[in-house]
């Protein structure tokens, strides 16, 4: 564990909490992509299957349980409790176009061809692109509430901080995982346009609105 990794995990946790607070306080999931949230739930379940096979640390186990539970809580709020506020007309991204290629890629490029390892790799690839339906929704509506922007910023920062963690681990421990690094770089690049808007608009107190 190093400072970048810890900051990344806390940023990830903050993102999830911000999203739950936004939905709970406004009693609405408007502006949030249920498709992205489904993909995140798939990511956590397929990655954290090792909860039942390998014990790493109490921290690791607790965080995994928090991520899985909170993603299902989010889905429950969006698709059951506040279903009426869900913006499904704008949330029209076809997730099979992400799920299938990621699965095929995981079958082809993985560290070892075993069910758990392929599913772990699938989750890494899928996480890299899971935010696309959300970014697509923001681009369709042309704006995002400020708390949604904070959520996206925290979620994007998490993998960017992991990139620093991987650079650190490469030098400090000689550890590197090309699959995670490659996917993490793509994941971070996808947020760059959003980061730019967040820094130039939201941090200056303006609403995140896309140029027409």
């Amino acid at each position: 564990m190093n400072i970048f990794r810890l900051a990344g995990d806390l940023s990830h946790l903050l993102a999830i909490i911000l999203l739950l607070i936004k939905i709970w306080k406004t009693r609405s999931c408007a502006g949030i992509s249920g498709k992205s949230q489904i993909l995140f739930a798939v990511v956590y379940v397929s990655r954290y299957l090792d909860l039942v096979t390998t014990f790493i640390s109490l921290y690791n186990t607790l965080m995994k349980l928090v991520f899985i539970t909170s993603s299902f809580a989010t889905l429950y709020l969006m698709y059951v409790k506040f279903k009426a506020t869900y913006d499904h007309n704008h949330d029209s991204f076809r997730i099979e176009f992400l799920l299938l290629p990621c699965f095929v890629l995981a079958l082809l490029i993985n560290a070892s061809f075993t069910p758990l390892e392929v599913l772990w790799t699938f989750s890494i690839y899928l996480e890299a692109v899971a935010i696309l339906p959300q970014l697509f929704l923001v681009s369709k509506t042309g704006e995002a509430e400020s708390i949604t922007s904070h959520y996206l910023f925290a979620l994007g920062s998490y993998r960017a901080l992991y990139l620093l963690n991987w650079i650190y681990r490469y030098y400090a421990e000689g550890h590197y995982d090309l699959i995670a690094i490659f996917a993490g770089a793509i994941q971070t690049i996808l947020y760059c346009d959003f980061f730019y808007l967040y820094i130039t608009k939201v941090l200056k107190g303006k609403k995140l609105q896309l140029p027409a």
Binding site: H12, N60, K64, Y170, H175, D177, L178
Partner: peptide
């Protein structure tokens, strides 16, 4: 240096 999986990460 050896390639390892980041299974200790989240």
């Amino acid at each position: 240096l050896k390639h390892q999986n980041s299974h200790d990460e989240l």
